[in-house]
Every structure is written in C-alpha cells, then in structure tokens.
Write a protein that binds this DNA or RNA. Structure first.
Lengths: 333, 333
DNA sequence: TTGTAGGCGTTATCAT
DNA sequence: ATGATAACGCCTACAA
C-alpha cells in the first residue's frame, strides 16, 4: 500500500479511502490512486483490514448434514447472495455428536464471523447461550431460535395438510416416518411435523396408535427400514406420511421390493420427487437460503436490527403415490 | 493476551507459545497460562495471528454447482478433514458465466487462502495462470489441472466399461447423453466420457452416428429432453449411456412417460440410483473430497510438496435398467 | 525456558 | 480533501 501511495504521490490514508470508495476523495486523486494500484496489480490484504477495522466480513453457516439435498440448497442459496456482497461464507458441518461437541467446546466462530446462519438445528439452552456469546446477529432457517431472525415455513400447518390429504382420501390407519428420536441432531422439524400428525389425526377422531410412528435415522435407508417395519405390523397402515422426501423414497423402495401397496406422501418436493411420482408438500428451499442471507446482511449493516421472521408458503403437490383407500384395498383385497 | 500474560505472570510471548502448543515451555508455566486463559475465557484472534504469521489457515474451494449431489459430497468430504485440522473452508460457487467472470476478474482469493481446491472444472490458460498467480498449492478433483495435484478416477476407462457393458448386451445402436456443449461451465468429464464413448464404439466396429449424441444442460430436465429427442429419431437407440446419473434419471423419466423401453446406464452411483434400479458406474465421491483435502494439507505443511496424482477405482453396478437387446426387441416388436 | 521489541498491512482519529 | 500516526492483536527473531 505504501508503494501505491508513493507512486500516486499521496498518503496511505488516501489510498485506503480511495480503494474503499469513501466519498471524500477528489476525482483527480482517485484516478491517480486507482491507476497506481492497477499498475502495481495491488489488492488490499483482507486480513489486515479485518484486523484494523474489527469486521471480519464473514458469515458462519452451521448445518447438520452438509451433503444432503436440503442443506445443499440452503447453502447454495445463501452463498449466492453473500458472494454478491463480498462476504465470505464459512461452513461448519456438525454431522455427528463429536463434531458438535467440539464445535461448542471451542467455539471456533469466536472473533471470526460477523453473523451466523444456523440451518434446521435445535440447540440446548447452554448451546444457545454459547451462540449468543459470539455477540453477532443470528439467523435461523427452518425453525425458531430465541433471539435470532428466522426464515421458515409453517411446519405444523404444512404437515397437517399432508395428513389431511390422506384423511381426505379415506385413510384412517395412517403411519408416520419420522426422525424425532435422533438424539444426536435433534432436528426441530421432526418434532413439529410429528406433533402436527398427531394433532390432525386426533382432530379427525382417528385413534392414535403408537406403533404407527417409526423413528429412524434420516435418509433412504432409514425410510426403507421404517416402511418394512410398518409392513410387518399385524395391521399395517394404508397410508404413510414421511417427514421428508428422502425418507419417502426409502419407503417407496421398500414397497417396490415387497410388492405391497401403501399410499406415501413426503415433504420438501425434492428434485427427484416428480420422477418418482411422489405426492409431497413443496417448499422453496434454495430461496429460503437466499432470504436468510439477505436478512443476515441487513442484520450486519443496520445498527439497530431486530430479529425478523419470514414465513414461506408451502403447496401440496399431488402425484401418483397417494390414492383413495378403497382403490388398492379393493384391488389387492 | 496481555491480560492472560499478566494473570499468569509471564510475557505475551510465552502465552503465545503455550497456546500454540510449541514445545519449549515448561510444564508448570504451561499450566499457569492455560488456567489464566481459561479463567478469562480467552481465545486468540485468528485474524490477528493470521496477519502476524502470514498464514491464512484457509482453503478456497471452487465448485461449478454447489447444490448438486456430486459437489455436495465433495465439499462435505473435504470439510470433514479440513475442520479436523482447524482449517477454514471458503466456498466459491461459480454457477454461471457472470460469477465466473467476476471471480477471475477480481480474484478474491488473493491473499486470502493457503491452498485451493477446484472441483471438476476446466479452466482456460489465462484462468489457470490467474490461479497459479495466487502462489498457493492447488488440488483438483475430477480432472487434471497443469501443475496441480489431482484426485480423480480414470474417466475414459470407466466410461468405456459402461459402453462395453451395453455392447456386451448386444446393443449396437447406442446413444449418449452428454453436456459437452455446455460452454459456460465446460466440465472436463463431459469430454472425456464422450471420447471414451466414441472410441469404444469405434473399436467395436460400430459406426458412429452423430445424431445419437445429445448435448443438454446438466440435470434431470436435460436428461429428459435428451431422451425425448433420441426417441423421436427415425431409428432410435436401443441403449443409452448418460454422462451422469442425474441425466440418466431424466432419461428414465422420459421413458416412463412415453412407455418406451431403452436400456440406460448412468455414471456416479447417486444415492437414489439403487431405488431407480439404474445400472451405473460407481465412484466414491465423498471419499475423493476427503483424499483431496488430505492432499491439500500435505501441500500446505510439507515445504517441498510436488503435485500428487491419486486414481480412485470405479465399479460397474448392474441393475435392472439395462438388458440384452433381444429381450425388449422381442417383447415389444 | 523466557522476555523484549519490532513488525504484519490496514483502518481510524486527529490535525491540517 | 489530505496527511501523520496510533491502534488492531498477535508472531518471531533475538537476547537473556
């Protein structure tokens, strides 16, 4: 920077001002500095400027399973807007309990980010306190975090609409494939969707059967396993609501391999759901990442930012994986 | 840090040494420092230490499509090992030509990373020169970059085995779904797999038909579109080799909707391929991310590192989407 | 083994 | 509008 200043015949302070686009620099000086910088192919050291300014220009993004479709969409959405504003995105994947413990043990985000984005993770009170202690704004996607901004859907309403769809088709024995018992990750949506399932059934006067709710690890294999267990019941369900499309895919797989027929509805509208003809509840995932990043930007720039809440709409997408209870019963019975 | 030093009754230099685990600190002093730091809940500022040491402790990861399965796996794999070694992962998604131009225009990685990981992207010579100018080691996943380390499979051999599988089933009119004409991204694997397709057919004495090679945008829609066009030919293929499983999924979709029967083989072994009974060439993607990150670490720590080349094995996975040419012909003909 | 002091490359606060 | 100069918080010879 000194070299540039010398070449332009100004002080380093002026160079700094110019390069940051601050207003109080004369046009003529600005040109000289810009030319000098260009001819020396000089770029400011982001690290030094971060140290001096105290702003890291970085957003920490915490996800439970980086490799999964949902989280990939969120991250890509957030990345697109952060990048546009020259903000760095630091990815933390807390896939297992060990990673999570390490994360909260040493809190590597300290002094390292200007804001945090957490995606579909539920935290304990001490963990939330830890996050808060970072002293930076927090935005959550997919669920509420006390004191944080939030971009999400109405999980209860959406899950309820899924169950109602099945009820409307005449199903009464309706199973659910959930991940609510996954202690390691504790996905909050698991609990909300399960609750919606229970409440909706109850409201419809359908008796609750404990054995119809399977909790499995998330993913294809989990879904397959859950459906196999449901099929093995003395009185198996005629329809199943899966917490996510990926679980539903697994369920479909089990059905195909066993030749059985059960209506299945998923949740997300994964890009492959159309191909598999899966009825599901669509949410716009990439866009939620975009909106969350926008909210973060606001939180970082506006001085008196207060947590915002954004509710995204969902839609029921009807396909061939669900049908009236009478149909298959007649056909197979 | 001064506070810690004072509390422990030592100098800041000793605190620094202790906290970084350098050897020449007496056990007793170390304890005092550690306690002092803990009681003040002090953590070093990574930014300051980066400025002082000149090492950024950060790896830049460049991908063309962050939201896609393949890239998600790679990133997650790399993240897992980088995180373990306290290295930050800075994600750059060059999804479109604009993002790419901006990236190479301002080269935001300058002075910001100690190493770079590029995933399945082909660069022009000036672009490679730009990357080289960063002065840090580079590792590529999925293809060669001159002067960079490399983790990949033998694309030509793997693609060839796919085509040979079809030939072995008696197919002679074999189509291909490719993305080779995608100028924006220029995925190198597209060209290698297409070449393998051509060479393998030629070696088998099968005449080359230009109209049997479709180039489409990557993804489900692309695959569907390509298959529709292939089906519309006067003399459609009896089998198709798709450059990736996602393209193959699209092809399957088209087949299902049209009720036609064509053998399809994909490439990758996407996690949903088993569900769709797609014959494919399996490669271990997550693991390639892990290995690439390991290589990067070596490159950053060893002073005289020279680019390594790692070749990962692939396997042909036989499923129900391919069958002998005679079967369906007889059945449908 | 430990302490001293200069430097890393900016930004920010004063003056001017 | 511009310049001088002290931070920013740590690392690293070098000296002790």
């Amino acid at each position: 920077m000194e070299d540039v200043a010398r070449l332009a015949g100004v002080s380093t302070a002026t160079v700094s001002r110019t390069l940051r686009g601050l207003p109080n620099v004369s046009d003529e000086t600005r040109d000289r500095v810009l030319h000098a910088a260009a001819s020396l192919s000089y770029v400011v050291s982001p690290i030094a400027s971060r140290l001096a300014s105290g702003r890291t220009h970085t957003v920490g993004v915490i996800v439970p399973y980086a490799a999964r479709w949902f989280f990939g969409q969120i991250v890509a959405g957030a990345e697109s807007v952060l990048r546009e504003h020259d903000l760095d995105l630091l990815l933390y994947n807390l896939g297992d309990a060990a990673a999570r413990q390490r994360f909260f043990g040493q809190l590597p985000l300290r002094r390292r980010v200007d804001a945090v984005l957490v995606v579909a993770m539920q935290f304990s009170d001490p963990e939330i306190a830890d996050l808060r202690s970072l002293g930076v704004p927090i935005v959550a996607v997919g669920h509420d975090v006390p004191g944080a901004g939030c971009v999400r859907i109405d999980d209860v309403a959406a899950a309820s609409s899924a169950v109602q769809h099945l009820l409307g088709l005449g199903h009464r024995r309706i199973g659910m494939i959930s991940t609510y018992a996954d202690q390691a990750m504790f996905l909050p949506v698991a609990h909300e969707r399960r609750r919606a399932y229970l409440d909706t059934l109850t409201a419809a006067g359908v008796p609750f059967c404990e054995e119809l709710v399977m909790s499995v690890p998330h993913g294809l294999d989990g879904g397959e396993q859950a459906m196999r267990r449901l099929l093995a019941l003395p009185d198996p369900p005629t329809a199943v609501f899966a917490e996510s499309d990926e679980l539903a895919f697994g369920a479909l797989s089990a059905l195909r391999r066993t030749g059985r027929h059960v209506s299945v509805i998923g949740f997300d509208d994964h890009e492959l759901s159309a191909l598999l003809d899966l009825t599901t509840v669509r949410q716009r995932v990439f866009e939620q990442g975009v909106l969350a990043a926008g909210m973060l930007r606001r939180a970082m720039t506006v001085s008196d930012w207060t947590p915002e809440e954004l509710l995204m709409p969902t839609t029921l997408v009807l396909r061939a994986s669900t049908w009236p209870v009478a149909v298959r019963t007649a056909r197979t019975g």
